[in-house]
Design a protein around this nucleic acid. Sequence first.
DNA 1: CCAGATGTGATTGTTTCTGTCGTTTTCATA
DNA 2: TATGAAAACGACAGAAACAATCACATCTGG
Lengths: 256, 256
Amino acid sequence: MSRYDRWNAILELLSQEGRLSVEEAAQALDVSTATIRRDFDQLAQQQMLMRTRGGAVAQSVSYDLPLRYKTARHADEKHRIAVAAAELVPPGAIVGLNGGTTTSELARTLATSATLESGFTIVTNALNIAAELTVRQHVKIVVTGGVARPQSYELIGPLATGVLEQVTLDVAFLGVDALDVELGASAHHEGEASVNHLLISRAAQVVVVADSSKVGQRAFSRICPIGQIDTLVTDGRLSDELTGRLTDAGVKVIRA
Amino acid sequence: MSRYDRWNAILELLSQEGRLSVEEAAQALDVSTATIRRDFDQLAQQQMLMRTRGGAVAQSVSYDLPLRYKTARHADEKHRIAVAAAELVPPGAIVGLNGGTTTSELARTLATSATLESGFTIVTNALNIAAELTVRQHVKIVVTGGVARPQSYELIGPLATGVLEQVTLDVAFLGVDALDVELGASAHHEGEASVNHLLISRAAQVVVVADSSKVGQRAFSRICPIGQIDTLVTDGRLSDELTGRLTDAGVKVIRA
DNA sequence: CCAGATGTGATTGTTTCTGTCGTTTTCATA
DNA sequence: TATGAAAACGACAGAAACAATCACATCTGG
């Protein structure tokens, strides 16, 4: 049983009862109280719960805490990509993020970054990112409106574009389904592509974050041509050939 | 039982009675009078109550509890309220929901309701509700944009109002911090009150959902006068006297 | 197979909380 | 104003919870 399983179990218990004592948790999960204390502290650090003397209380108004400790595919690559991308953000910046697993990981990394402790702003159309980071006091979360799309948690449609037209971003991080030198960035869903297109058009700088398996692929709906992309942050597995072609097209490639 | 639980209980007793003696509190919570005195002093320091010799009295307006005190309160009442409120929604309706624990419970109830299996639409400014219900295929989720407020997960500000102006609702369910016959509905935070005000102004029918402890209370910022409220769904503990006064004011009261 | 990193449990000293007890302050009444 | 009872305060002690540390087990990549 990994630590993440235990964390999930703790959050599960906590969401049922509203509060949980160190002793109870230790018995329920069959570990020592020292471990539970460590877990509580770490979860509290992530704003998942509130520490009290002798236990912990549920933090948010939502009973159903997000189950964020899944063991995902390419987790390691995504994490490295996120760390490298986070370094591009100066304190106080206004950052745009669309939906996707890589951008979600990036959002977490940004929220826990030491250099950004003084605060910054995230503008996003991804519900999961917004819901997860809302509890962090030093991050201002601005959400586009719109209709929620179940598969990706992204908000799309005219309401989303209406809000995006009213904001300006320092840098937009774009998670994509596919990135091709000729076609540019693309997504599976035309509604997402449309909103993502508008998101990057509001940004002074456009950074695509994608693991190397996405590069060279094409998806149904085009987001933007390759020329609008300033930077690509990907993992080290990207071939030198693809890297060269992207660089020739004017994209700065960072292989984390 | 942690100190925060005790503080919760003290504030709970205090809001019911209006005043509370050291001796009463010590008996009710089964701790020494010394502890109660310490608690009273600490709560007074946080402006949660006013100290008197031998006891404490409630503040005139209720403040937003700091997050750390909050535990799942009145879970059972909230569930019954949610079930009763859900019966007011016909299939295919467009339903507005603001943030709060009661409306969150209502959202879950609506999503699992058998009579609504054919589908309906939720318009909300509550991130937690949106994030939780997005996965349900038969519910269309429309989210207002805006800036996320950590304490309540509500989206507020001009971006939120901009989106709300573009929609029309069949029925709006309003979770409130306080409901008073003279003052109407009110919230702790002026930004929330403003958005909530707009939400109900877009609705053909306005239903307030609140457990009985909220009725007769007043909070900082007014949402709307009592005349704009069509129905109140609350729990069975609401006194006949308060029920009568609300009915006289034109509000249909449902005690679940 | 080893070196290093990570996670867990036990031990030990430290902090925090709470109740008791004695003293001081406050308030009502004579 | 004096007085006595109730309330509040301050100091102390015991208990519970916590933090720091160390030792051991497990895992991982070379």
